[in-house]
Each structure stands twice: as structure tokens, then as C-alpha cells.
């Protein structure tokens, strides 16, 4: 297992490298000239040219690519934004921590709330709990986050004055954004957990367990749950990945300076330096999260663990021993 993890960590490097090259190439072919945007409408042509020269935008593609890769991966210098002199790495880490908090808390809440909700639904299939949970899940998935965010703001900030309407400088400021951000995730996780659990409950090995006369609790926790969790680990990981980049709306509604807003702004202003750096950082984080997901998989499902370790190594080793013992 340790070997597998090491291998996966090493594999992140070429993946991130490829991502950097891809994003660089895409941005290169995007219309829109950063020099023009910086200088503004009506700037003289020669001024724009001069700035392009200075920014190195006129060099041939490969030269620019080479420079960029060298600066990023060898000198670890993400540079400064085209618009101002703030070093990108500072800005990114500052913003990233906020987005990260949002994303991580969403995952935790999804798992803690969504999975039991789904399990309870599944075990009381057709009953009122099931109906209620599924209605809540439907609402959670259908309602747009900005709408529910604003509605909650109106209620809790304006009418009740319990929570601040913007910003996350105090811990109360985090309550609403985290809640709203997790809603969709909880709903999805509940539905997934329910269907996964339903499938597992109907499976043959659960029937075998029942035929053994085991109490319902044991069947639920030892037989059904571990098997039902397997597809959910995947869902949780993917959800984390998308929420890393997708918190733009929440960040906007609650005035949280996160990566989402940063990137959207950079795209509109063609701030290539920011876009590239942000994408590279996101790629690294995403890869690491996926690795964690796969490791979790390995711990839950022994079949997958065996895949990681190479088939039946233990067995072959023991077989050899047995043969030796038999011959002795």
C-alpha cells in the first residue's frame, strides 16, 4: 500500500506539468490582449506594442512556454499579476485557504449529514421518513444556491440580526456560507447513499446474513454499510473537486475573497499569470484529493486494496511455504 501511495504521489508531477502546458496553450490562443486591457481603451498602438514587448508577449510560442515552465516548476516563482504588483502566490494562498475551508467543511457535512439521511431513508423505504428525506433532497438539489443564500441572509441577517450579512472575519460569518454550500452536496449524497443502500440491502450477501439470524444492527453496520459506502467515497471526492472551483456563487453572495472570484475576475481581464497559477494550484490540490479518495477506497474495499498491492501476493507466498513444508 505504501508503495502504491508513493507511486501515485510521483505521478502527480507529470499530471500537473501537462495541465500547465495545456492551460498555457489554451490561453495563448484565446482572443484578447492583456497589454491592451491593462492600458485601456484607446491606448496608442505603439504603447501597446511596447508593453507587449516588455511582457514578453511577442516571443514565439515555445519560448514563452519554456520561460513559463522554467519559472513555475524550477524556480517556483508564480510571478505577479498583470494588473498589480501583488505576488500571485501570496494572493492565492490567502484566498485558497478560504475556498478550502468552504470545500472541506462541505465534504464533512455532506458525509455526516447526507449518508445517515440516505441510510435512514433506505431502511425505512416507502415510509414517511423516506418521503420526507427525499423531498428535502429534491429541494436541496433544485434550489439555486444564490437564491437560498439570499433568502437565508434576509431571514437571519436582516430580520433576526443573528448573523453578519457579509464577510467571514468572525466565525458567525462562516455559518451561512458553509450551510448553503453544503446543501446540494448533502442532497446528492443522501440520494446516492439511499440508492446504494437499497441496492446493497437487496443483495444476496445481506440475505445470507439474515439467514444466519444475525440481528438487524449487525447486518446494517457490518454487511450493508461498508459495501454501500464504496460508491459514496467516489462521490465525496468528486464533490470536493468540483466545489474547489465552483464556490464562485457562494463567494460572491457572502463576499468571501476566495479562489473562485479571483479566477473569474482574472479570466475577464485576461490576467494570464493569475489564471495559469490558479489552475496549476487547483490541479495539484485536486490530484491530492483524488489520491486520498483512492486510498480511502483501498481501506474500505479489500478487492481494491488487493488491486493496489498486486494480486494475491500474500497467497502466493503462503502457497510456497506450504509446498516447502510439505516437501520437508
Amino acid at each position: 500500500m505504501a508503495q502504491y501511495v508513493l507511486k501515485r504521489i510521483l505521478m502527480i508531477i507529470p499530471v500537473v506539468f501537462l495541465v500547465a502546458i495545456t492551460i498555457f496553450t489554451i490561453m495563448y490562443f484565446c482572443p484578447g490582449d492583456p497589454a491592451e486591457i491593462i492600458l485601456g481603451v484607446g491606448a496608442a498602438a505603439e504603447d501597446i506594442e511596447a508593453l507587449r514587448e516588455q511582457m514578453g508577449l511577442n516571443d514565439p510560442f515555445l519560448v514563452q512556454l519554456g520561460n513559463y515552465l522554467y519559472r513555475t516548476f524550477i524556480k517556483f516563482d508564480f510571478g505577479t499579476s498583470y494588473a498589480n504588483s501583488v505576488p500571485i502566490i501570496d494572493e492565492l494562498s490567502h484566498r485558497f485557504s478560504k475556498t478550502f475551508v468552504l470545500a472541506i467543511s462541505a465534504i464533512i457535512i455532506e458525509v455526516i449529514v447526507g449518508i445517515p439521511l440516505g441510510m435512514v431513508s433506505a431502511t425505512h423505504r416507502g415510509g414517511w421518513i423516506d418521503q420526507l428525506c427525499m423531498i428535502l433532497a429534491l429541494i436541496g438539489i433544485s434550489v439555486p444556491s444564490f437564491w437560498i443564500g439570499l433568502q437565508l441572509l434576509l431571514i437571519f441577517s436582516l430580520k433576526l440580526s443573528w448573523l453578519p450579512p457579509y464577510g467571514v472575519t468572525t466565525w458567525q460569518g462562516w455559518i451561512l456560507p458553509i450551510f448553503v454550500n453544503s446543501l446540494r452536496g448533502i442532497a446528492q449524497m443522501a440520494r446516492q447513499a439511499r440508492s446504494s443502500m437499497l441496492e446493497v440491502i437487496r443483495s444476496d450477501y445481506v440475505t445470507t446474513a439474515r439467514a444466519k439470524g444475525l440481528p438487524e444492527r449487525t447486518i446494517l453496520f457490518r454487511y450493508a454499510l461498508p459495501n454501500a459506502l464504496i460508491p459514496l467515497v467516489q462521490t465525496a471526492g468528486q464533490s470536493f473537486g468540483t466545489s474547489l472551483g465552483g464556490t464562485v456563487i457562494i463567494e460572491n453572495v457572502f463576499s468571501i475573497p476566495g479562489v473562485g472570484q479571483y479566477m473569474v475576475n482574472a479570466i475577464v481581464t485576461r490576467d494570464y499569470a493569475v489564471i495559469r497559477s490558479a489552475v496549476v494550484v487547483l490541479a495539484i490540490v485536486f490530484s491530492l484529493v483524488m489520491l486520498l479518495v483512492d486510498i480511502a477506497f483501498g481501506f474500505i474495499d479489500p478487492r481494491i486494496k488487493a488491486q493496489y498491492e498486486g494480486r494475491n501476493r500474500k497467497y502466493k507466498w503462503r502457497k510456497k511455504l506450504r509446498r516447502v513444508a510439505a516437501n520437508a
Binding site: S203, D204, T208, Y223, N227, D301
Partner: peptide, 13 residues
């Protein structure tokens, strides 16, 4: 004793 041995056992135990 059940019909299909392939699915009668809990894969995680």
C-alpha cells in the same frame, strides 16, 4: 445455502 455463490458472501469481510 443459496444459489449464486459469487454474490452470497460479503466482499468486505
Amino acid at each position: 445455502v443459496f444459489q449464486d455463490p459469487m454474490t452470497a458472501l460479503n466482499p468486505t469481510m
